[in-house]
Design a protein around this nucleic acid. Structure first.
Lengths: 195, 195
DNA sequence: CTGTAAAGTAAGTAATCACTTACAATACAA
DNA sequence: TTGTATTGTAAGTGATTACTTACTTTACAG
């Protein structure tokens, strides 16, 4: 009888490398030749693990997003402090803005939204992002009693706007690291706590 | 003696077409063949007007940004109403979010920031954008006396964050048009007037 | 007219793209 | 060992890319 398939393991092994490549190079410049070289395999091996490049890209996008969500969850679940979870989340975000390459892949994906599957993957990602921020915001408001004029859903989208732009500013070097942190913290806390 | 050169006129003629192509297709998918076809010329004519594709792209980016700034200036300079300029600017922005293809070209450019000239063009664009919003914010604050806890410079960046994300939301259909306007207006006025 | 350089046409360049084919080596159940 | 399906290697596919070359036509200053 044949060898047992290990494709699933292999995919898991290669995904971090592929994700790093896409976040460095974007979609178009991350050629299949380049991807294969970084994985130290031949191109056709990638094509045995995934049907096409677009599918690899979506897998990398999902992987980076999931990794970030896992990291957040782990950090927030650490029994800690008097600070609310959303406050710690903002501090966390401010600390490692752009740390994993998630946003660079997101910006790459924004240029491929004419592809239906990539667009769906992005919608899924943003809705999950929004849902989890919204949930944190709601529990924060319940516990702290702090009230802002806006609804939690709106505040969650506003936070996402801030984070998105922080990554643009990082890429374009519009602000230095200190300035970026100061601006983001100030605006984010203003959103959370009201003024 | 030879014919007088009309290259400058020709460039001005073609730029709107080229800008439209880049904003529909992004940088990579706007191939030189496609650009030429839309301009109804042969490829080498484009190469007589510009040295390379990257330069065409930057010209298109600058053109779209300038067009938007001109439109703003024109609208705001209309003698009008009791409303402050920055309030009218927000209303204007909310009305025609994504109207000209500027943001799609900006997102395309964000994937090409490894090219030094494109990166510089983007820095220039954002700094000019920020400077004009900041100026409007300062005069608004002087005139209306309204005070928010944050500085004008920060508020200007926050507005830019909002607009950037509104264009992502538009592209990904994260909100419908009504929801988008409601959210943007609410958050933008909150930024301008404080709460 | 006429000379000249700009404007237009048509074809072609080498390089690179995503993806494939053909085949040898390997590892495991029997 | 042996049969079989997985894993690896090497080469090649046609299509497409940004950019060029060679050449003809046109418009205008003198």
């Amino acid at each position: 009888m044949p060898r047992p398939p290990k494709s699933e393991d292999r995919r898991r092994e290669l995904l971090p490398v592929l994700a790093a490549a896409f976040s460095e190079l974007g979609y178009r410049r991350a050629t299949t030749a380049e991807l294969a070289e970084r994985c130290k395999v031949q191109e056709n091996i990638l094509y045995r693990l995934w049907p096409d490049k677009k599918t690899i890209f979506i897998a990398a996008l999902d992987y980076l997003f999931q990794r970030r969500m896992d990291k957040w969850k782990k950090e927030l679940d650490k029994a800690s402090s008097t600070k609310s979870r959303i406050v710690r989340l903002v501090e966390l975000t401010s600390k490692d803005l752009g740390e994993n390459g998630l946003y660079r892949v997101i910006f790459a994906a924004l240029n491929e939204t004419d592809n239906v599957e990539i667009k769906l993957a992005m919608q899924r990602l943003y809705h999950r992002y929004h849902a989890s921020l919204d949930a944190e915001m709601v529990t924060h408001r319940k516990l702290s009693g702090s009230s802002t004029p806006a609804e939690c859903g709106d505040l969650a989208w506003a936070l996402i706007s801030l984070v998105s732009f922080m990554n643009i500013a990082l890429d374009l070097e519009l602000m230095d690291s200190k300035e970026r942190k100061r601006f983001f913290s100030a605006m984010a806390f203003n959103l959370i706590e009201g003024s």
